[in-house]
Amino acid sequence: MRGDFYIGAYWGPRKETALECARRAELFFHMLARYDPTFTQWYRRGRGAPRELPGHPVRQVVEEWEQLFLRGMNRTDATRKVMEDLGFRADVWNAKTSERTRIELHCGEYSPFGPGNTCLFHPPHEGPTRERILSAPVLAGVLTSIATAWDPDFAMASSSEMVDLIQKRKREVRVGWLTYLSRRLGTVPPLPAPVRIEPVGTLGWLLILSPEPMTASNPEHVAFTARIRELLDRAGLIERPEPGPVRE
Rank of each mutant, 00 (worst) to 15 (best):
S135G: 09
L139R: 01
L53I: 07
F121D: 12
E63R: 14
F154W: 15
L86V: 00
T38G: 08
G204S: 04
A216C: 06
E104S: 12
L27E: 14
A9K: 00
Q167W: 03
G116M: 02
R183L: 10
A147M: 05
I7Q: 05
H125R: 12
A18R: 02
R196M: 12
V222C: 09
N117R: 01
R47P: 02
T144C: 02
A90P: 00
V246G: 10
L207P: 02
L165E: 12
P219D: 07
S160W: 01
R80K: 13
A235E: 02
Y35P: 09
S158L: 10
R183S: 07
T225V: 12
S135A: 08
P137Y: 00
G87F: 01
E212Y: 11
G204L: 04
R14A: 14
R34M: 06
F28A: 14
G244A: 13
E161H: 05
P243E: 08
M73K: 13
F88C: 10
E198A: 11
E66V: 04
A226C: 02
V142N: 11
G186M: 05
P219N: 06
G236Y: 05
R71Y: 04
Q41I: 04
V61G: 02
T179D: 07
I133V: 14
A223M: 04
W11Y: 13
E248H: 12
D164R: 14
R130T: 02
T179P: 01
E239Q: 10
H122Y: 11
G236N: 02
E220Q: 08
L165S: 02
F88M: 00
L185K: 10
G176M: 08
I166T: 14
E126F: 06
I7C: 13
R240G: 01
L209A: 07
K15T: 05
V61Q: 13
R44S: 11
V61W: 00
P123S: 08
